[in-house]
Simulated assay, not measured.
Amino acid sequence: MELLYKTILIVHLFCAMLFMGWGFAKLFVIAPIKGTIGKDNFDNLQKELSKRVWKIYPANMMVLILTGTILSMQYLTFENGIFPTTFQTMLIIKVLLAYGIGVKVVFSITKRLLFKIKNAEDPNPVESSAYYYIFTVGVAIVLLAKLMFLI
Rank of each mutant, 00 (worst) to 15 (best):
72 S>A: 15
62 M>N: 11
135 F>G: 00
31 A>G: 00
119 N>I: 00
29 V>W: 11
107 F>L: 12
36 T>N: 10
3 L>Y: 10
139 V>C: 06
29 V>E: 06
65 I>M: 15
28 F>N: 05
120 A>I: 03
119 N>D: 14
26 K>R: 14
86 T>G: 05
106 V>C: 09
27 L>W: 05
87 F>Y: 15
40 D>P: 05
30 I>P: 00
21 G>S: 06
135 F>I: 02
100 G>A: 01
96 L>E: 09
95 V>C: 06
57 Y>G: 09
45 L>S: 08
40 D>T: 15
131 Y>G: 02
8 I>M: 10
51 K>E: 12
72 S>H: 08
19 F>G: 01
95 V>S: 09
22 W>H: 08
20 M>H: 06
46 Q>M: 09
117 I>Y: 04
92 I>Y: 07
37 I>H: 11
68 G>A: 10
95 V>P: 01
21 G>A: 03
125 P>H: 02
37 I>G: 07
62 M>H: 12
123 P>D: 11
22 W>A: 00
78 F>N: 04
90 M>S: 03
18 L>A: 04
150 L>Y: 13
32 P>L: 07
98 A>D: 06
25 A>R: 11
43 D>Q: 14
20 M>A: 10
149 F>Y: 15
52 R>Q: 11
103 V>T: 11
16 A>I: 03
8 I>H: 04
118 K>W: 07
113 L>F: 13
49 L>C: 06
115 F>S: 05
19 F>M: 07
33 I>S: 07
27 L>M: 12
149 F>K: 05
10 I>W: 13
142 V>S: 09
49 L>N: 12
33 I>V: 14
9 L>D: 04
48 E>S: 12
102 G>Y: 11
1 M>V: 07
136 T>N: 09
124 N>G: 05
42 F>Y: 15
97 L>G: 05
72 S>F: 12
38 G>I: 04
89 T>W: 05
79 E>C: 07
34 K>P: 03
26 K>L: 01
98 A>K: 08
99 Y>T: 02
42 F>H: 15
127 E>C: 00
133 Y>H: 05
131 Y>E: 07
81 G>S: 08
81 G>F: 04
100 G>E: 01
142 V>F: 12
103 V>H: 10
5 Y>H: 13
16 A>G: 07
21 G>T: 03
105 V>R: 03
19 F>T: 00
6 K>Y: 12
74 Q>F: 13
20 M>V: 06
128 S>A: 15
130 A>N: 11
79 E>I: 13
133 Y>E: 02
43 D>F: 00
40 D>M: 11
63 V>A: 10
61 M>K: 07
119 N>R: 14
24 F>E: 03
89 T>R: 10
8 I>E: 01
38 G>M: 09
6 K>T: 09
56 I>P: 02
19 F>V: 00
114 L>C: 08
101 I>H: 03
53 V>C: 00
59 A>T: 15
96 L>K: 12
75 Y>I: 06
21 G>H: 06
23 G>E: 10
45 L>F: 12
33 I>P: 03
113 L>Y: 14
133 Y>W: 09
57 Y>F: 14
137 V>T: 11
72 S>D: 13
132 Y>E: 06
29 V>I: 14
37 I>P: 04
80 N>L: 10
151 I>D: 08
87 F>A: 11
73 M>G: 13
18 L>P: 01
22 W>Q: 08
150 L>C: 03
128 S>P: 04
2 E>I: 13
